[in-house]
């Protein structure tokens, strides 16, 4: 279980997070929605320690993440980055097997390659892709490779940062389906940040809306449409009129 209590983060004069309280239960899929620039990525990176919060506590299974042994802590996570964040200098299979060739999870090269190809197959890519470099792949393929890398070491917790941004609707559907299948299959805890409502409906067990630096609304995805919160309703219906200002 991941628990955030009173998390604050400020960049210069810009207070991005102003006391975020959120709980993500083990084995569930939480999707955080919110407009561009509302701090969704900062929230996600704060959990991983890529951004240090100014105030507040983030705990994983009751333990403050700042006190956790870093390598063991990170080994529990997999992450799909918005742009894939694949390493240009490495082949596709080396990207996928990155964690399997270094550190405590290191295994023989052949075995790591075999696992990488298996994970590529799992995300719908042919083994021939394994020996290409990321620059030779389309945006959708890069996302799939990023997804394969995120699940390669079979982590307990997987984060997805804007998994469908920049993809066409069909490819978005494919990625959403893959995420859902993989998370269920692995029994993983998942946290996704997105502003794509089709992703929310496809992936989420629970939804949290981040607005004004705080969690504006949170609840099961099934209750989202009936919720009375005007911010949430404006956001999910994409209306320009409402409490959320369209000009920021």
């Amino acid at each position: 279980m991941i628990t955030l209590s009173g998390v604050h983060k400020t960049f210069g004069p810009n207070a991005v997070l102003r006391g975020v309280d959120l709980t993500i239960d083990r084995g569930t899929s939480m999707v955080v929605i919110g407009g561009s620039g509302t701090g969704k990525s900062v929230l996600l990176k704060s959990i991983l320690g890529l951004v240090t919060p100014d105030k507040g506590v983030i705990a994983l299974d009751g333990q403050d993440v700042r006190k956790a042994e870093r390598e063991a802590f990170l080994a529990r996570f997999g992450m799909l980055f918005q742009g894939g964040a694949l390493f240009d200098s490495l082949k596709v299979w080396e990207n996928v097997a990155f964690r399997l060739m270094r550190g405590p999870l290191a295994r023989p090269k052949d075995e790591a390659r075999e696992t990488a190809i298996e994970k590529l197959r799992r995300v719908g890519l042919k083994p021939a892709v394994a020996d290409l470099v990321p620059a030779e792949l389309s945006g959708g393929m890069q996302k799939r490779v990023g997804l394969a890398r995120a699940i390669a070491a079979e982590p307990e917790i997987i984060f997805f940062d804007e998994p469908t941004t920049g993809l066409d609707p069909i490819m978005s559907g494919v990625i959403n389906e893959l995420i859902r299948e993989i998370v269920v299959e692995m029994g993983a805890t998942a946290m996704t940040i997105t502003h794509d409502m089709s992703s929310v409906r496809a992936i989420a067990d629970n939804v949290a809306m981040l607005h004004g630096g705080v969690i504006q609304w949170t609840g099961p995805v099934a209750e989202m449409d009936a919720a009375k919160d005007p911010y949430l309703q404006q956001f999910i219906h994409g209306r320009s009129d409402g409490p959320i200002e369209s000009v920021r």
Partner: peptide, 16 residues
């Protein structure tokens, strides 16, 4: 470029 494209963050999440 690696920083801008989040590859440095990716390295950290991969325990490197």
């Amino acid at each position: 470029t690696m920083k801008v494209t989040e590859q440095l963050d990716a390295l950290v999440t991969l325990s490197t």
